[in-house]
Nucleic acid binder design. Structure first.
Length: 521
DNA sequence: CGTCTTTGACCAGCGC
DNA sequence: GCGCTGGTCAAAGACG
């Protein structure tokens, strides 16, 4: 469409060129017409990007506006709560609260506060004016995605510090070989190695499902089964059969702790069109791939020494998005059941669709729920990425899922499904736009904290649909949004809060993944 | 008969 | 070097 519009615009110039070339030989004419086409398409592309840019700019300004007002309100509420609590709570409970709050921060981990502070000093600079609370909540993405280093730093002690709860599951979900990763990441410019690396990008989905596998819309062929160590349940290996050349594989395994939970780990990106029902998952997996690729491409050897803190976004509305790339375990302090991987070399995204019962995360952590019922929690390390969806958003890709009435999940309604789709889409977008993660984040967050009004997050966010959001922001931007309603019917105010620095505008990396493959056939 | 699953064998990486 | 483990292959069987 834009191309056709563009056609008329540039027609005169092109005609001139043609006229000119008519005087020359025919080959030249052909060449010129070729260039003409290229010019046309390029212009169209530029216009597209410009449009998108404008749209996202508006989006961001809107968010910033909202942020300002909500921040004000949030601070008021927080202060009130603080005053109330300060008289009631004991030092120990206060400590808990603090750690929970720390876990909300990007670039600060409660386990390594000092380290993080040092490493993200630039973040502090940007957030100093916020002090206190914002310090806690600020997201420092600046150095988080520098590949690396992290890789070179092995942190075995941290490996099992977190998963006492589900060690087997983690084993089941992940199988990484740090040394392998090390090799591939060290020579990031090596294309072959990069490919090897991208193969390791994984998306893990935890869902309650009684069926042997989760119906994600794709066709799979089982090619193997293995007993995983430490897990009584066998792990099944599937390969995508939609296209014979499709590299996508998935592993399916039951959670040893809860057999009703199915852990599906996807690896690779589809190289073929997918049915609409499969696009969400496909987008997510390919986005993970994209993220990994962009990381490796944007990594700088010299910056490799910084160990990033885990990045996680969590909301009571069901989103917990954790990015971690390092050997250090992702630190989701108040999401003990979120599936983070022990595997340190596989960047892994975990979608946790399991239904939390009464002991949901936030119920367990009243302060977190009180202060940030809908909080976006970013932290990053370099070993895995986990995205947890639960509560209201929990649902399944399995269309027949609701038929398993014994499962404690909520019935999948059209609303929640749409919500899930949007959530996945947004999360996918975030991942996909990793090179411009900071800016893209805004778009994704808008989907969550905004009204889901279709503001830019499409149903099928192809990985390649990079918006090219280059809007420059201030040093840090905090989103603090109140949800109009809560999913649990209690009606508590749901504030989503996230802040992150937009200290640098990166051009979005064209994702190598063919986003268009995911378009409807 | 074609497709899919099962299952033992094989290979590579890793730790000791 | 050896054993363990994860991942894959491929032959055989099951199924529609």
């Amino acid at each position: 469409m834009e191309a056709s519009l563009e056609k008329s615009d540039i027609a005169p110039a092109e005609e001139q060129m043609v006229m000119k070339s008519n005087g020359d030989e025919e080959g030249l004419v052909l060449e010129t017409s070729k260039e003409k086409d290229q010019l046309r398409s390029a212009k169209a592309e530029i216009d597209k990007v410009r449009e998108e840019n404008e749209r996202l700019k508006q989006l961001l300004s809107k968010i910033a506006k909202d942020y300002q007002s909500l921040k004000k309100r949030f601070c008021e509420v927080v202060q009130e709560e603080e005053e109330k609590k300060s008289t009631k709570i004991t030092p120990s409970t206060r400590e808990n609260e603090e750690s929970e709050l720390v876990s909300l921060s990007l670039g600060r981990s409660s386990s390594e506060p000092k380290k993080e502070e040092e490493k993200s000093s630039n973040i502090d600079d940007g957030n100093e004016h916020n002090e206190g609370w914002n310090k806690v909540f600020s997201l420092g993405l600046d150095s988080k995605f520098e590949l690396d280093s992290s890789v070179t730093k092995k942190n075995p002690s941290s490996e099992h510090g977190f998963d006492d709860e589900e060690p087997k599951e983690e084993e089941a979900t992940e199988t990484c070989r740090p040394s392998k990763m090390l090799r591939t990441t060290i020579s990031a410019d090596d294309e072959v190695l990069q490919q090897t690396q991208t193969k390791k990008a994984r998306v893990s989905v935890r869902t309650r499902c009684d069926t042997p596998t989760m119906n994600d819309g794709c066709q799979w062929r089982k090619y193997g089964q293995k007993m995983a160590k430490g897990n009584p349940c066998p792990r099944a290996y599937y390969r995508c059969t939609v296209s014979p050349t499709c590299p996508v594989r998935k592993q399916v395994q039951r959670c040893p702790k809860d057999m009703s939970i199915l852990i599906t780990t996807y690896e690779g990106a589809h190289n073929h069109p997918l049915p609409p029902s499969a696009t969400a998952m496909a987008s997510t997996t390919s986005a993970a791939l994209s993220m990994l690729q962009s990381r490796s491409s944007s990594s700088q050897p010299g910056l490799g020494t910084s160990v990033s803190a885990p990045v996680s976004i969590s909301t009571t509305n069901g989103l917990n998005f954790t990015l971690s790339q390092n050997n250090a375990r992702p630190q989701q302090f108040y999401f003990p059941n979120s599936s983070t991987s022990t595997s340190n070399s596989h960047p892994t995204i975990t979608l946790d669709l399991t239904a939390p019962t009464s002991d949901s995360h936030f119920n367990r952590f009243p302060y977190a729920s009180r202060y940030s019922p809908t909080c976006l929690n970013f932290s990053s390390s370099s070993s895995s990425t986990s995205l947890e969806l639960n509560s209201a958003l929990q649902t399944s890709w399995n269309p027949g899922y609701s038929t398993y009435g014994t499962l404690p999940h909520r019935q999948t309604s059209a609303t929640s499904q749409q919500c899930l789709t949007e959530t996945i889409a947004a999360a996918t977008k975030v991942i996909a736009l990793d090179p411009s993660f900071r800016s893209a984040l805004a778009a994704a967050i808008t989907t969550f904290v905004g009204n889901n009004e279709g503001n830019g997050i499409r149903d099928n966010p192809g990985v390649g649909e990079h918006s090219g959001l280059n809007t420059k922001m201030g040093d840090s931007l905090t989103f603090n949004t109140i949800y109009p309603s809560s999913h649990d019917g209690i009606g508590r105010a749901q504030g989503s809060l996230v802040s992150f620095p937009f200290s640098a505008s990166k051009s979005s990396s064209g994702s190598p993944v063919n986003s268009r493959d995911y378009n409807k056939r």
